[in-house]
Design a protein around this nucleic acid. Structure first.
Length: 221
DNA sequence: GCGACAG
DNA sequence: ATCTTGTCGC
């Protein structure tokens, strides 16, 4: 797929923060897409003591969840891991991998937060804005916010609150396992995002998209 | 100032 | 994220 947006990568945290505050205005928090036929899972891994960043993208047919295509990109790591600035570390490699795809995904499921972020611009929101493809943040733990206890059964969820605002949801994708944290990335509402995450999840805690991408990024095929 | 803190 | 095998539990 082609990525039209010209991307700027900051060299200081000050610049990065300003960029997040500027681009966060572009996030569309309501449903704005057509029929979803292809869903992409994205994951990033590190090698050689974190000096190499490897991004993996796997495109699945929706709703069958059959694998259609996959891509891998590797490049030198250029930004440290600092909570709140994950996208600057991982997105350069992710964009490389996305550009290799021969088909354009209709929806991106990204490891990490969407707008459940101090400046409402986590990695899923950043990726959505840069590609202009609908995206969802699917995180295994919280960056910011709190929530009430989530009932044990699969499908149950509770709002994730941060500074009086609902920024996402704690979602039980599998009974008796820790919830996942789902948030708006771009061009999708929270309710719809939760629905797509559930429809991409079968018998495990993580969505099939994420599981395929995890496996590919860690070199297990 | 102190503690928390996606991957 | 990553270092790492078998093992305990549903």
């Amino acid at each position: 797929m082609k990525i039209a947006e010209i991307t700027t990568w900051p060299s200081t945290f000050q610049e990065a923060k300003v960029l997040q505050e500027t681009l966060s205005c572009r996030v569309v928090r309501r449903d704005h897409f057509q029929v979803i036929h292809r869903v992409a899972g994205i994951d990033v891994g590190f090698e050689d003591g974190n000096t190499i960043t490897q991004a993996a993208v796997v495109v699945l047919e929706f709703p069958s969840l059959v694998v259609l295509e996959q891509a891998i990109a590797r490049r030198p790591t250029s930004f440290p891991y600092v909570p709140g600035f994950l996208s600057f570390r991982e997105l350069p490699a992710v964009l490389d991998a996305l550009q290799q795809l021969t088909v354009t995904p209709d929806l991106l499921l990204c490891d990490g937060q969407g707008i459940a972020h101090p400046r409402r611009f986590g990695i899923a929101a950043h990726l959505g804005v840069l590609t202009d493809v609908p995206s969802i943040g699917v995180a295994k733990s919280i960056l910011v916010g709190t929530h009430d206890d989530v009932p044990e059964e699969r499908g149950a969820w509770r709002p994730l609150w941060h500074r009086e605002e609902c920024v996402g949801a704690a979602v039980r994708t599998r009974a008796k396992t820790r919830p996942l944290y789902v948030s708006i990335g771009h061009r999708i509402s929270l309710e719809t995002a939760i629905d797509y995450v559930m429809r991409c999840t079968t018998r495990y805690r993580l969505p099939e998209t994420t599981r395929h991408a995890d496996k590919l990024a860690s070199g297990r095929r």
